[in-house]
């Protein structure tokens, strides 16, 4: 399966999974909203131009916004993490690895600790920005802090489960392929 087709399928899958599976879970607590959809952006290939990545983040967030009827909310958060992503990858990985190495970020391609940091930082950024915009409407600081941390914890758990369920064969990029 080519990279393009795989990512198109992922795009649809993550949106539908977020809306129709995670969105249907009855709330356990006011702080906890299970988010997983942004993993799509984390899993995009290394070799994608910065502009395209930012645009894709925007479109992806907008697709979810169409379902949740909040135009701009998820789009803004997704654009942010899509823009930050290249900086973070170049910080966490030696330059050569991104040039010759694997096609997309995963535990095998980046190593466990750099990948964990990568996921943690982007998840935290996404949730902080998202909750921050909700907080602008409401304004309760404890609520803000509590929700950011609880939602981040839940998302990390979901990402861990997803990584274990779907073991991605880390393809080594060659010139032939």
């Amino acid at each position: 399966m080519s990279n393009l087709v795989r990512n198109i399928i992922r795009f649809a899958f993550f949106i539908l999974f977020q809306v129709f599976v995670l969105g249907k879970i009855p709330p356990l607590h006011q702080f906890i909203v299970p988010y997983l959809y942004f993993l799509f952006i984390l899993w995009l290939p290394f070799k994608i131009t910065r502009g395209a990545l930012t645009l894709l983040g925007f479109l992806f967030g907008m697709a979810l916004d169409m379902f949740t009827k909040t135009p701009g909310l998820h789009a803004a958060a997704c654009t942010l993490i899509a823009y930050i992503r290249p900086f973070l990858i170049s910080l966490l990985m030696p330059k050569e690895a991104t040039e010759i190495g694997y096609s997309e970020p995963s535990i095998t391609s980046m190593g466990f600790v750099p990948y964990a940091v990568y996921v943690l930082v982007l998840t935290f950024l996404h949730h902080s920005y998202l909750v921050f915009m909700e907080w602008l409407h409401f304004g309760n600081f404890l609520y803000f802090i509590g929700k950011v941390f609880a939602t981040t914890a839940i998302s990390l758990l979901l990402i861990l489960i997803t990584e274990m369920l779907f073991v991605r064969k880390a393809k080594y990029r060659t010139n032939v392929a």
Binding site: R50, G51, T54, K69, T70, G72, A75, A76, T79
Partner: peptide, 30 residues
């Protein structure tokens, strides 16, 4: 700074949609 400018443009677009929702929600997009 084209990437940064593009990023800022998309942010402004998204935020303006979010905060102008009341007037905007009648529009063709929704």
């Amino acid at each position: 700074f084209s990437n940064l400018l593009f990023f800022l443009f998309l942010q402004v677009l998204a935020l303006s949609m979010l905060f102008r929702y009341n007037k905007f929600h009648q529009a063709a997009y929704m």
